[in-house]
Design a protein around this nucleic acid. Sequence first.
DNA 1: TTGTACGCGTTATCAA
DNA 2: TTGATAACGCGTACAA
Lengths: 343, 343
Amino acid sequence: MGKATITDIAHETGVSVTTVSRFINGNYGKMSAETRTRIQTTIDRLHYSPRASARQMRRRQSMIVGVIVGDISNVFSSLLFKGIYNVLQPAGYDVMLMNSNNSVDQERDEITRLQSQQVDGLIIQPDARDFRNYETITDSQLPLVMVDREIDDQPHHISKVTSDNFDSCFSLGSRLLSEGYDKVVVLTRVMSQISAQTIRADGFTRAAQALKKRAIRIEVGDHDANWLDDRLCDEIGGSEQKAGSRTLLVSLMGPLLFQTLTSLKRLKLNFPDDLGLVSFDDWEWSRYVQKGIYLLEQDPTALGEQAASNLCRQMEAAAGNQDPYQASRSLVLPVRDVPASSI
Amino acid sequence: MGKATITDIAHETGVSVTTVSRFINGNYGKMSAETRTRIQTTIDRLHYSPRASARQMRRRQSMIVGVIVGDISNVFSSLLFKGIYNVLQPAGYDVMLMNSNNSVDQERDEITRLQSQQVDGLIIQPDARDFRNYETITDSQLPLVMVDREIDDQPHHISKVTSDNFDSCFSLGSRLLSEGYDKVVVLTRVMSQISAQTIRADGFTRAAQALKKRAIRIEVGDHDANWLDDRLCDEIGGSEQKAGSRTLLVSLMGPLLFQTLTSLKRLKLNFPDDLGLVSFDDWEWSRYVQKGIYLLEQDPTALGEQAASNLCRQMEAAAGNQDPYQASRSLVLPVRDVPASSI
DNA sequence: TTGTACGCGTTATCAA
DNA sequence: TTGATAACGCGTACAA
């Protein structure tokens, strides 16, 4: 029977529910070793397992954390989750994962669901441009960490864990452009209202501006394969232009790199000879692909771990009836700059 | 206040809790349109949201499903989850995701946690070799679907959703070997006690046996890069042997393919000239990599969707006090065989 | 060291 | 068309 209750255990064992409750919660302090083993035996025999829901009602905490990611099929999201889970599971929290599919509406619905579940905290890779969409969370003083994407009007006392997107792109862009590239072509594929890619693109654009060089941004949508070929051909030039080409091509998203490589192959453009290639990468695979790519690596797992441990602090504060947002901390994680030659 | 209760709403609105409860659950049947709007107003004003835990206690169902995957950082797992979520979320279920890290111990702990949460159903990519590890689930008649990996002694009335691993490998292996390859070298990287890779390897091995050709299996662990180089050199031969080589090299796992390609490049072995290359792939990226690879594609998202919809049927049965396992169905999804030339 | 009794927020039953 | 009230399983203050 999966239906045994604490009362059943108490009766079977011949003790009171209080004693059983104490046992379950590890308050062995005042309990004879004998009753202890007797209770354990009964529990095993009846396959008893305490109902989390009943426990929640009394304790006023669920030990559940809600996580909303933009697209779980993107490696970034799964590595982020992994980092979160690494921290939260050992801390005793269960994690409810939701996939917003980069839709603000869906995200709103999911926040409601999570609030109904009385989650003790929330980690969100946000979709919406305005913080207004998240005020229902802060109104109820729920511990909250925003991850990866930046919201303009987010109050500074709300935690935010991001990568060093702008600076890393600006500095790599500056260096490469001053080493002799004429212009930079930035490829993005923005799925959400807000995206880290936008900030990265800005980094390169600003670097170009500072050096008075040209910056072009190409937003790759769901076009067919030829579309990108044509655009690249326009911007970088066909084979006749190759020789004098000093273009720096930047792919700001993992999956985009593969598409780019395919196009380059079709166009018979080689790097680093015909152009310079930079890719922003979430994880190690791209280094298997080919030599000669400059990589900007972020570490989504670390991002998740930092977000989760900050959330834990907030939840502790909340459990002690304090303002969780006092325990908030914002964090910018470094992006690793891997030289093309070292791969 | 996030603390408003149904009683508060009732008092504020000047109706009884029963009425509010009816409203919340959409039983408008016998309710004046006016009280309806009045209740809605109060709910909005007080930011009321019903506690899932209190509701669970009465209803005896949680509307939560537990999912345990082997390694969430593996693309297979995240696509699987996506499929599951696609089905479960619209059906009104929330999903608790756990990562077993391919550890049987961790998996056991997670099953316990999920049972405490009183999940209405469980989808597991199992780690353990014996079904004994999951009997605590079937003992309590909990809806259950096993995914991806096969357990020898799993009772046939327990649902299982897998890919057509053996047959697809056997048939591709048979075809290619009879078209002129001398032997097959299979690369695996098994992380768990059980793995679909083992079955795939068997498929190729049996194909070789039937044609009286050699089959070699290399288990790639966490060795350094050179290790694989050496092993491949042993089996496939160095450049002097290339010319006459008729080896079929098989990578049975996505990430392994990249490692393999790197090794082949270092060894200056080209395909399809020097050898034939086959890869089992979870998703479309490998087709960007290079031409000339035979691909066996499975569809983890579809796997997840099927698993989830079967689970739903079981949960409906359980809700109607019937044996959920009568609604169980096992399913084998096809593996797509993509010819090397078509990529 | 152990037991009794009440309350947590919701829904279902019965009554009006 | 609406209310009053008894459960659900657990934790804890208080009593013994």
